[in-house]
């Protein structure tokens, strides 16, 4: 059984765990079929069969895109003044299936084996809605199920004069590159300024040899693709983003949140 991630010529079939993906000719049409945890999707691809690219995408678009922020909560880590530490966390895998065009990609399907949960970072009038995920803390790269979890390398740097307790990181997924190979990975830095303020930045870094950057879904724009049943909207994911972006300023705390009743 080969990895599902990567480029696959037409026709293609993958069966692994509770996921099946296939492209094939049937009844005069090229067809895309996918099942995931019992959820089934079938699409008719107008024209002849074309290759698929499948890779992990920013985990902020399911079941509906309402935010670009990913929040990972982990057991508290206390870091001394001027100190630095590299932690390994995990993040949820959302799988994007793309059709390759001449210059760009169209997002054909998006699914995940991981149930989604959202949260609020900060107050309702100034904070941001985040995709929420709880992770353990690992000193080294953990072994993960590549269809379920990816590895988030978080480099902490404490610029404050006090010991700081950190138990969450919020990352802006716009421009985020997820690398994949044996497992998916993201590298991020967190510069701590005080017990409630830090800046996070996703960096472009491979965690293992042979990894390659995934096609991001965040630059998606609508296109229309003809189908047997009329036309339906798809999303064109542009070429991989190349511009570096500014980080996200976490200004509502680095530890557990205050509840709003």
């Amino acid at each position: 059984m080969s990895s599902v991630f990567g480029s696959h010529p037409f026709p293609f079939e993958y069966r692994g765990g509770s996921i099946t993906i296939a492209t094939r000719m049937a009844e005069g049409f090229a067809r895309y079929e996918r099942t995931c945890r019992g959820d089934r999707l079938e699409k008719i691809l107008a024209g002849s069969g074309c290759p698929l690219t499948i890779n992990p995408v920013e985990p902020v678009k399911l079941p509906k895109e309402i935010t670009s922020y990913l929040e990972v909560h982990f057991p508290a880590v206390i870091i001394g003044p001027g100190g630095g530490k590299v932690l390994y966390l995990t993040f949820p895998i959302d799988i994007g299936v793309f059709l390759k065009g001449k210059e760009d990609y169209s997002l054909l399907d998006l699914f995940s084996l991981v149930p989604q949960k959202y949260s609020l970072y900060g107050p309702p009038d100034g904070g941001v809605v985040t995709r929420y995920f709880e992770s353990d803390v690992h000193p080294d790269i953990p072994v993960v199920d590549p269809l379920v979890s990816g590895v988030l390398e978080l480099s902490l740097k404490n610029q404050a004069r006090d010991w700081i307790e950190v138990s969450r990181v919020v990352l802006d997924s716009i421009g985020m590159t997820i690398y994949y190979g044996g497992y998916a990975s993201i590298a991020a830095g967190m510069e701590i300024f005080s017990s409630s303020v830090a800046e996070t930045q996703v960096t472009r870094k491979l965690l293992a040899e042979g990894q390659q950057p995934g096609v991001p879904a965040s630059s998606a724009k609508k296109v229309t693709v003809a189908s047997m049943f009329g036309s339906f909207p798809l999303y064109t994911a542009g070429k991989a983003l190349v511009s570096e972006k500014k980080g996200y300023l976490m200004e509502y705390g680095l530890g557990d949140m205050i509840e709003h009743d």
């Binding site: 309402i66 949960k117 949260s119 609020l120």
Partner: peptide, 13 residues
């Protein structure tokens, strides 16, 4: 709690 859009923080009561 199982609903994705019922926020984790602030949690439901």
């Amino acid at each position: 709690t199982a609903h994705p859009f019922v926020l984790r923080n602030p949690g439901p009561s």
